[in-house]
Design a binder for these strands. Structure first.
Lengths: 336, 336
DNA sequence: TTGTAGGCGTTATCAA
DNA sequence: TTGATAACGCCTACAA
């Protein structure tokens, strides 16, 4: 910039004023500076600018697993909106590990991101601890923590699962296995409540044998489903609390020599783009990924542009039960 | 840092020396400074540090589509290795659009990333143009450009597809449809060559009717497959040049009232974690994502630590044909 | 072993 | 409308 100023015969202050539109610049200088910039091929140094202004125009995005299509769909939307608004996005993954989460958030904070969008991993306490240091706007997505007063975009998990289980019960199922996510997360807890609600509402006992923790991961879910499938009294249906886990469930079913939906019905949270062309066509709860991403982006953009304190806003969206062919009516075999 | 120095009664230079291990510091001061840091809760300002040192400890990662599981698998590996090595990763997506690619790379360059890992979109020329400005280490993954002398990690696409088509021909297929990626990419071209090689080798004519461009996207592939499926003389098999496109192909097959593999065989590039539990179990070419990610990371880490000029290295890996059940033997129906 | 001082490239505050 | 100058927070000679 020094070179540009020298070449144009003006001061750096004037160059800066022109570039940022901070102050009016006469047409003549505007011209001279412009051609000097072009001649030199000058590019403003963002680092120096950030040091001075205290803003990096970057926002940090923290998700649990980049391999999970739900998260990547949301990320795609967020990146799109935020780029359009002039922000860069730094994406980090925690692998569902609170320690890694702390590390990644520290990394982002060190780099002075202007804001943070987080799909938290681990328990609430882990998140509260690491967020203590951050006095920048934070919006939580997918999962929330009651201890943290931040903007958030979440699903009505309880209601969505309740609806899916109601559907299975309506089909005649009485023993419904449930593969849960980690109960350290609000999604894990909310979805399980939906399951319990539905059973209770139908006057069905909630047998603890039928609930297994799969931690939102395929491998854990495989093991969890296996435990269900060796039960003396087999469940006639299994619900999986997310997309990764239902793959594990299907593998367990296959490895036990069972077929879906002939021998056992399966349904899960999260939809797949391929769900209606591969058999069994999975009955799922589709999340409004587009809306989640847009709301989250908007929330943080609002905070960024208008630092006035406003109470945290929590946006709750609804899932959509998409019925396909992985669940069959079930009638209790005659006991004789 | 000023505060820390003041509190500990030393100079900032000493504090800096301690933090960076640049110079030996006496145990006594080490102690005093340590507690001052803890008391104040001091965190070093990465921006200021970067301004001075010229290094951001950040590397830019540019991929075509975050929604594509192949890319996300590779990204997961790269992020893991690079974080371990002390680097942050900024991930950007181009949506297969050369303009967006230029914009994203500019953004990364503005932010002074220390290196770039790119899965290029668009034609070679687009990439060359934008990379002119970058005098930092660059490694290309998945796709390469002959015009650019950079480290690269790619697949032997030609050989992999050749093997898959050989397999189909061995099964008796003679009219094999091919849904291609964009021919502006090296992967698009390489994979198509493999197809042509195999046909030629079997003395089969390569009918241009049977080759359609799907641009690596589900929707385009759907349309491309539709064109194949209304041909008077239907192909008995279709090969898709990537994962996203095979979903489109399957949707087209379904919409035309056909079944796979009974009516038509299907195979594709890229594997899915769920490929062996959902029907039809797809026969695919699996890419060594772990190796791709590790090589790419290593290549850039090498360049970063050892700026000595060494000729660009190109690592070529092999795909693995994974035979499942989506391809059936085909015998020409009697023509009477 | 420790301190002083200058500069990295911008932007902000004045005064001219 | 423009220019001089002082930060921003850190690192690094070099001097002590």
């Amino acid at each position: 910039m020094l070179d540009v100023a020298a070449k144009a015969g003006v001061s750096t202050a004037t160059v800066s004023a022109l570039i940022n539109g901070t102050a009016p610049v006469s047409p003549e200088l505007r011209e001279r500076i412009g051609s000097a910039i072009a001649a030199i091929g000058y590019k403003r140094n963002t680092i120096a600018r950030s040091l001075k202004t205290g803003a990096t125009n970057t926002i940090g995005l923290v998700i649990a697993d980049i391999t999970n299509p739900f998260f990547t769909d949301v990320v795609a939307v967020i990146q799109d909106v935020l780029h359009r608004a002039g922000y860069a996005v730094m994406l980090c993954c925690t692998d569902e590990d609170p320690d890694q989460q702390e590390e990644q958030i520290s990394l982002l904070l060190d780099r002075m991101v202007d804001g943070l969008i987080i799909a938290p991993a681990g328990d609430d306490h882990a998140l509260e601890r690491v967020l203590k240091r951050a006095d920048i706007p934070v919006v939580l997505i997918d999962r929330i923590s009651n201890g943290i007063a931040a903007d958030a975009v979440v699903l009505d998990n309880q209601r969505a699962v309740r609806e899916a289980i109601d559907y299975l019960i309506g089909l005649g199922h009485r023993r419904i296995g449930y593969i849960s996510g980690s109960l350290d997360t609000s999604t894990g807890r909310g979805r399980l409540s939906g399951y319990r609600d539905a059973l209770e509402n139908a006057n069905l006992a909630c047998e603890e044998d039928l609930v297994r923790i799969g931690n939102f991961r395929e491998r854990d879910a495989y093991n969890a489903a296996m435990q269900l499938l060796v039960l003396p009294d087999l469940p006639s249906a299994i619900f999986s609390a997310n997309n990764l886990m239902v793959i594990g469930v299907m593998k367990a079913i296959r490895d036990m020599g069972l077929r879906c939906p002939e021998d056992i019905s399966v349904s899960s949270f999260d939809d797949f783009p391929w769900a209606d062309v591969f058999q069994p066509n999975l009955t799922t709860i589709a999340q409004p990924v587009q809306a989640i991403g847009e709301h989250a982006s908007q929330l943080i953009l609002d905070r960024l542009s208008n630092r006035a304190e406003r109470p945290p806003r929590q946006i709750v969206l609804a899932g959509r039960l998409t019925i396909r062919e992985s669940c069959r009516p079930f009638s209790r075999p005659d006991k004789n």
